[in-house]
Amino acid sequence: MRRLLTLLALFSLAACEQDYNPPFAIPCPPLDVEETTVEEFSQVSSLLEKRCGTLDCHGSLYRPFKLYGKDGLRNFLPEEYSDPELAQANMTFAGGLPTTVEELDLNRRSICGLEPEKMGAAMAGEIEVTELLFLQKPLGDIDCTGREDEGCARHKGGQVFIGKGADDTVCVKGWIVPPFDNGACSTAIAVD
């Protein structure tokens, strides 16, 4: 009887076991599949660095949605954190080295990690890309009037993207749902 109970207990435990081996991956357009993907996201990142990633906005360690880049927050070594001279020698300061591939990858993860489930749905075409928070906010699509107490997440920086059909939005959309529009990105980046 005791053996039977032990066996039953073991079977029960085995039934609860879950396979955690497969890595959990956040859906995100790849960066390193081929050379073009780096070049394409580099354009998207340039746009976001310019419009969103200034040091007083999303180029800050205090922002949940962080953006790294040449003229903003830099991806720094632990030693550079408290040693400005080392950061200067390595050109790892705001305005120093051009945006690095590592910084591009951090920006990519920052975008995709914001709403991972919705990013997967947007990539699969199940929802509009403009339903993603990281586009709703710069498009000024969130009106919190009268909903301040409900935790409504207004965008303090206001509207920094011109519109849903404008080059800035088309540039970002093309990175998430191809085809990528190189011309739209170039035009959007050139806006002062």
Binding site: C52, T54, L55, D56, C57, L73, P84, A94, G95, K156
Partner: peptide, 25 residues
């Protein structure tokens, strides 16, 4: 200035004493 100013009215908030990963100096 190479970038826009997003929200900070104090130039010295970003332009600190030294060039660092968080400041252009």
């Amino acid at each position: 200035m190479g970038t826009r100013i997003g929200r900070e009215g104090s130039c010295g908030a970003c332009h600190t004493q030294q060039k660092t990963p968080f400041s252009p100096g």
